[in-house]
Computed example of a mutant assay.
Amino acid sequence: MTDSTIAPRPVPHRPGKPSPSPGGLAAAGLTVGYRTRSAWGRGARHPVLADLDLTARAGELTVLLGPNGTGKSTLLRTLCGLLPPLAGDVRVAGRDVAEETPAVLARRLAVVLTDRVDAGLLSARELVGLGRHPHTGFTGRLTAEDHRVVQWALEAVGAAALAHRPAAELSDGERQRVLTARALAQEPDVVLLDEPTAFLDVPSRVALTVLLRDLAREQGLTVVVSTHDLELALRVADAVWLVDRTSRVHTGAPEDLIVSGAVAAAFDAEHLAFDPLSGSFGLRRAARATVTVESPPHLGPLLERALAREGLTALPGPAGEEPRISADEHGDLTLRGDGAARTTRSFHELTRTVRTW
């Protein structure tokens, strides 16, 4: 992935809504987890993450990362009020979420969860229109202003062309865009999304993640996203909340957490290692040998990666000495050994040959 793949896109101006409060989302002394009932009626506390002080600022995309089972979904559900905190509080623009009525909270905070939504016979536009419910009052009728907001939300997520499609017939990527539009139609100050890129292909994941960043910046929203797309998140996010295996939460810009070693400590495994220079993961393989190589810059990293998969470390050879493996500007790959040379344009053929050394 290059930086050109995550270029910002214009987002239409939101009609009739003042800029959200700069307060964003904040948690102070927050402990999240579960309570279980006992025979005496008093619930036992089962904390998952404890004593958290977190801030997600307006105009920024904040990404929640961590290995499976570390409590990310529990934290997100507590932040949006679906689970009560075991201790501490959550505030939107300085107001305690626990003290807001459901109607008021729905106008301040929108949520997109991983739970499947049964849209029945609704069209995509009608599904997005449900986001206006906190604003319609007792009758539930949409006014001309409500319809303008629904249209804006569809256009903001690039789903205007889907408006009249049956929501039940949308693809996973299209459905995620429409559900995001429904959240935007609430005109909230804060949007929380749990795994919005799950089940999407790579281009759709990139498009939706960049869209959320653009919405945060251009609409002044506070956007918090839980995701497993680590490398994409580290490229796009303004801020990161990283839950490690010890239930500690690290916060900062992606680069802060890379430099501190928190990303590597949280995700490195026996056969996988995070490279802070490239911001990506690579196989952790014990090198069985070194091999001299020569390659143009655009093929060098690919050649090194292919050889690393075979347990070989690529090194430049001494000046004047012919390299064991070389690549040229045309993509020809040459392997030299036993007084002979074999040339191919296929990395697959090259690595198959290397295995027989």
Rank of each mutant, 00 (worst) to 15 (best):
G339E: 11
H164S: 14
L272S: 04
L61D: 02
M1T: 13
L61I: 02
V32C: 13
R245D: 08
V206T: 13
R336S: 06
D194G: 08
A167E: 13
L170T: 07
G140L: 09
P10R: 09
F347A: 09
A39G: 09
G300F: 04
H348P: 04
R37P: 06
A159Y: 11
V149Y: 02
T101E: 14
G158L: 05
D214P: 08
L64K: 00
R245Q: 09
D146K: 10
A308D: 10
R165T: 10
G158I: 01
E187Q: 15
L86K: 01
P15T: 11
A39N: 07
D189N: 04
L277P: 06
G29N: 13
A161G: 15
A237P: 05
E174A: 12
A273W: 07
L192R: 05
L230T: 14
M1D: 10
E349Q: 15
R324P: 05
A98T: 02
E322G: 03
L76V: 10
G279R: 07
L221S: 01
P323D: 09
R45Q: 14
P84Y: 07
S4R: 14
L272F: 06
P102T: 02
R132W: 02
P323I: 09
L230V: 15
R108W: 00
L130F: 06
D256L: 05
A167S: 13
R217S: 13
L30I: 05
T62R: 01
F138P: 15
L333H: 02
P166T: 11
G140I: 05
T356I: 12
P276T: 04
K17P: 03
H250T: 04
P297N: 02
G140R: 11
L257T: 00
L83E: 03
W152S: 10
A56Q: 02
T180R: 09
P276C: 05
L52T: 02
H13S: 13
T36V: 14
V90L: 00
T222Y: 05
R182N: 06
L82S: 11
D275Q: 04
L232G: 05
T5H: 13
L335V: 10
D275K: 09
V236S: 12
V354R: 11
R9W: 06
R107I: 00
V202T: 11
T343E: 07
A87V: 00
D201V: 13
I325T: 05
A233F: 07
W152P: 12
T70K: 06
L127S: 08
G29C: 02
R177G: 09
I325D: 04
P296Y: 03
L75Y: 01
L312G: 04
